[in-house]
């Protein structure tokens, strides 16, 4: 499989990264080069192989249902580029 500049534009949109046409055109061969290289995995016979789920075998632990966090609004908002009246503020969203 090889990607077109339309696909790269679509991927950039999915990833929310602004890109000029020039940047996109520059990325097309780079991505194709890398993708062409990773596609050598197709050679590997993986019939009946389960995809790896946990790199070191262990069970998922479950937490007890206790309120141990919260009430730290100052800390939560401290680094916000824009916070108003205890909220994060973002450019208006029109639904």
């Amino acid at each position: 499989m090889s990607v077109s500049s339309e696909q790269v534009r679509h991927i950039a949109k999915l990833a929310r990264i602004g890109m000029s046409d020039a940047e996109i055109d520059a990325l097309v061969p780079e991505l194709n080069n890398i993708l062409g290289w990773v596609e050598q995995l197709a050679e590997v016979n993986t019939d009946g192989v389960e995809p790896l789920t946990a790199v070191i075998e262990q069970k998922l632990r479950l937490r007890e249902d206790q309120i141990t966090d919260g009430n730290i609004r100052e800390a939560v908002l401290a680094n916000a580029p824009e916070a108003q009246h205890g909220f994060f503020a973002v450019p208006k969203v029109i639904e």
Partner: peptide
């Protein structure tokens, strides 16, 4: 571990995990 109660002051029932601070991780509630 933040509370779920309805109607609290904005962003008072928010942990660093809920705010997706860098390096924060999820641990499921039994």
């Amino acid at each position: 571990g933040a509370a779920t109660a309805f109607g609290a002051e904005p962003n008072t029932q928010v942990s660093l995990v809920d705010a997706a601070m860098p390096g924060m991780l999820p641990v499921p509630n039994r």
